[in-house]
């Protein structure tokens, strides 16, 4: 099937893109890697009049060291994020999660910023970005602003990015030396996660940060478990006991792949496993 007709704009700078967005507003849709957008357009679930392709803006691609943070350009592909040395060294959890996004072909096209801006609660990058306290740099007509991860994810497919704004880069505070693991639970490999847990820990265990995928309308932090783990020793029993609180405050969906109570059970089990693997136990 083919999308409805649209006009295509390919700006070469953020300014151009913003001006196009300002002009077309609601009728426009931003195309980043297109790996979620194109299926939606093909199924005619969305029918924008204008598509603004960010692919020509080279400044949006790339990964750099910015002192206390690693900065990932919004148009950097999952494939490049996964393999980048800076990412592996300082924000290992991001590399681990990027490796689990969809499949090889999708990772070659899909972008880090595009996936986060799409804000699918079953997306693999929201939970690790949230857990690591990422900061989202958003450009608008009046300049750029930075939004903390806690404020970025608003609801199902909804973020703090305004209709006339563009996510340009994501700053992720360095967690150098932290262990990390992304535990994804699926029935078949090409499926969106039924539940996934992003865990990163310092030492074993001084501090733990845990994000949950698909346990509500946005990525969630397992804060009760994080608190219980801080300063605890990384024994299997201790971690599992702390993980018992992982589903607190979650509100997962019920669908063909699992009812809400089962997902909450999974969140507890998978949190324990993710933390233990992150801690190298």
């Amino acid at each position: 099937m083919i999308p409805v007709k649209f006009d295509y704009l390919a700006p070469t700078s953020v300014e151009e893109a913003l001006s196009a967005l300002g002009e077309h507003g609601d009728e426009a849709k931003i195309l980043a890697g297109g790996q979620s957008l194109l299926p939606v357009l093909r199924m005619r679930l969305n029918a924008p009049e204008v598509v603004i392709d960010l692919g020509g803006i080279s400044s949006l691609r790339g990964i750099r060291d910015d002192g206390d943070a690693i900065v990932i350009g919004a148009m950097t592909t999952h494939h490049d994020v996964r393999d980048h040395e800076l990412v592996k060294e300082h924000v290992l959890l991001i590399s681990k999660a990027a490796a689990e996004v969809a499949d090889s072909q999708i990772r070659h096209r899909g972008t880090f910023g595009g996936a986060l801006a799409h804000a699918d609660p079953a997306g693999d990058l929201g939970a690790p970005a949230l857990a690591l306290g990422a900061q989202f740099v958003i450009a608008g007509a009046g300049g750029t602003r930075t939004v903390e991860a806690d404020d970025f994810f608003v609801d199902l497919f909804e973020t703090a990015i305004g209709d006339d704004e563009i996510l340009t880069e994501v700053r992720i505070p360095k967690h150098t030396g932290w262990g990390a693991h992304y535990e994804k639970f699926v029935r078949v490999a090409h499926q969106w996660p039924i539940v996934a847990v992003a865990a990163t820990v310092k030492g074993s265990i001084d501090e733990a940060k845990i994000g949950l995928t698909n346990m509500g309308s946005t990525p969630l932090r397992a804060r009760a478990t994080e608190a219980a783990l801080a300063g605890a020793s990384a024994t299997e029993d201790g971690v599992r006991a702390a993980a018992e609180q992982a589903a607190e405050g979650t509100n997962p969906p019920s669908d063909l792949n699992g009812a809400a109570d089962y997902r909450q059970h999974l969140a507890r089990v998978l949190t324990g496993r993710a933390v233990l693997k992150a801690a190298g136990v």
């Binding site: 029935r187 809400a260 089962y262 059970h265």
Partner: peptide
């Protein structure tokens, strides 16, 4: 499915009520 297997295992111990 994992859910069905899990519910079958716990059908009698109350851990996994049928929703």
């Amino acid at each position: 499915t994992p859910e069905r297997v899990w519910r079958a295992i716990h059908a009698n111990d109350g851990d996994a009520p049928t929703p």
